[in-house]
Design a binder for these strands. Structure first.
Lengths: 350, 350
DNA sequence: TTGTACGCGTTATCAA
DNA sequence: TTGATAACGCGTACAA
């Protein structure tokens, strides 16, 4: 039963060397060919030919063991299936691929135990660095990585891990959450809305907090109070739950949801409450995931792909020991107005 | 500049052995502890303690090199950000995690060159098997893998690779595409629709073909002809393009789109054409991705998570040389009726 | 019950 | 210009 498979043993560098009548190390040199090295074209050609004929492919395992680097990056995300994260992952994956790195994406489901397990696995596999896109705060695990000076890059999340012990060279790619929130509120205010509510994201996350801060500041500037409710998670379901609470009684005329998924939940709750969007209540989300266009949701655009790519590039630079000019990258957001926040304006006082 | 990082060298099995005053091999034995091996509890405890103290973690690299297996699976997908595939990936990832395997997801973007590159990378990394979820047909690359008896499992795609040279033991997890299509058409016919169109998926893919076959059969059974147009890709954009062609002139009263993304495109085209869904035209999709609920799309449900999980399990079994009872798994679909296909019925002859 | 010796496949370094 | 050697970190057959 066993041993049935894996018959045709893969050819190694020794096989090539033997057939080419050279030493294995010569084969290695030729195949990797460093500039500034002198090989006789003759042997070179012969080795190349043999290696092609044997379909020789070096073992990344052995090489990594020898080189002490794997050309592999790990990535921790709370949910692969989340459209926003998917965009980030894709960006990171492409940047990695371009530079010859492989990315291992790990789905933590925001469960600390899984996070820890994966972190262990990644380290056992000697990945050259870890990209952390999970939104949760305060990770001792991350703290310990940073403490060990293990290459880590944070994407779309901050950290409250003991600022004291860390330098200012932490790798960090995020967007202007406050600015985005301000843009959202400004947009709604410009449409004439005065009764604006905010369905905030979990206040256990940096993004959730920052967006709330921006919202509050903008509301104040417009001389508005605004109602704030908090969704317990960045999900449609929790957005729905929070919105129901908000819509009972005297509903606001406009709602800014902390992200698009939450906005979808708000949308569902509004419909159930017999409220039309945007006629009865205007709605703005955050992130601009592809589905936002599907339901004509106004939202704050976030360059997901770029976030992932930039973060991966930073991390690779760090892993390769290259100097990094800007370890912290702040990307701009941009409001995308769509149907969900269209009317109002003329009926300001309606 | 360099050498700055990676200072604190990770402790190896030798460090543990030294401090525990035993031979490295003893440490290895204790840590892996095979049943049926007799260790003195005393040394055992000592080694365990030391290893804990040093925070020793074995190198997966070295182990894999020695064991000739990596406990790693590769996965080829055309688009990580595709919601349907994301569900499959998630299922596969979880199954892998449960069994101690790591999954490397590769985004091929349906570009043959990338597919080939990734396949090479995965083999160099000695993955124990590859999960192929790309929908394209006829891959010589896949053919060669199969020929080499390298563990491969196909998910949501068939293969037209030379049936002759392959056994019947190919690993294959897919859904009943024909049955699903039939269910969709039956559903529309039951609503009273007589002018039913099908926006088919790319006929270069097995799923696209199977769904068309099912559609044709069902239409025929109902004594209908039906219009067929083909989308050039499984995307919103191509669905839109195909639908525009379909909707000019005398539009059908119902449309079955080969998958949800295409259905979204149809939806957009219908709206632009001033047609209301479902009042003027009923719509049914395929896959039941989460976004389908968002726009109230009727669709054929596909157990994405299960597909990924089952495929991964099959592949792991094969990689470990365990016998496989059912190498080909066919999962059932189920029609989910939502608003997009609601009315009609009473106005059959309207 | 534990130690010895070797090999997994590469590549860097030094010698020739 | 090429060869020889050692080492990366681990697991296992065999010996003690």
């Amino acid at each position: 039963m066993r041993g049935e498979r894996g018959k045709r043993a893969r050819s190694t560098i020794l096989d090539v060397a033997r057939l080419a009548r050279v030493h294995p190390s010569t084969v290695s040199r030729i195949l990797n060919d460093r500039p500034g090295l002198t090989l006789r074209p003759e042997t070179r050609a012969r080795v190349l030919a043999i290696s092609k004929r044997l379909d020789y492919r070096p073992s990344a395992l052995a090489r990594s063991l020898r080189l002490q680097r794997t050309l592999t990056l790990g990535m921790l995300v709370p949910d692969i299936a989340n459209a926003f994260l998917a965009g980030i992952i894709k960006g990171a994956e492409e940047a990695c691929h371009e530079r010859g790195y492989t990315l291992i994406v790990c789905n933590t489901a925001d469960v600390p135990e899984r996070e820890a397990t994966y972190l262990r696995v990644l380290r056992e596999r000697q990945v050259d660095g870890v990209l952390v896109a999970s939104a949760r705060l305060s990770d001792e695990s991350i703290g310990s990585l940073l403490a060990e000076r293990f290459p880590v890059a944070l994407v779309n999340r901050g950290t409250h891990v003991d600022r004291g012990t860390r330098g200012n060279d932490d790798l960090w790619v995020h967007v202007d959450d406050r600015g985005g929130a301000v843009a959202a509120i400004d947009h709604l205010a410009a449409l004439g809305h005065r009764r604006i509510a905010h369905v905030a994201g979990p206040q256990t996350t940096t993004t959730g907090r920052e967006r709330l801060v921006g919202t509050r500041a903008a509301l104040r500037r417009h001389g508005l109070t605004g109602t704030i409710v908090e969704a317990e998670a960045w999900s449609e379901v929790e957005g729905y739950r929070a919105a129901r609470q908000l819509l009972r009684g005297d509903p606001p005329s406009a709602i800014f949801a902390a992200n698009d998924l939450i906005a979808f939940g708000v949308l569902r709750a509004a419909r159930e409450a017999g409220l039309d969007v945007p006629e009865d209540v205007a709605l703005v989300g955050f992130n601009d995931i592809p589905e936002a266009a599907l339901v004509d949701l106004s939202t704050v655009h976030v360059p997901q792909h770029e976030m992932g790519a930039r973060a991966a590039e930073l991390l690779i630079a760090r892993a390769e020991g290259r100097p990094i000019a800007e370890p912290r990258i702040l990307l701009e957001t941009r409001l995308v107005a769509r149907g969900s926040s269209a009317p109002a304006k003329e009926r300001v006082t309606a």
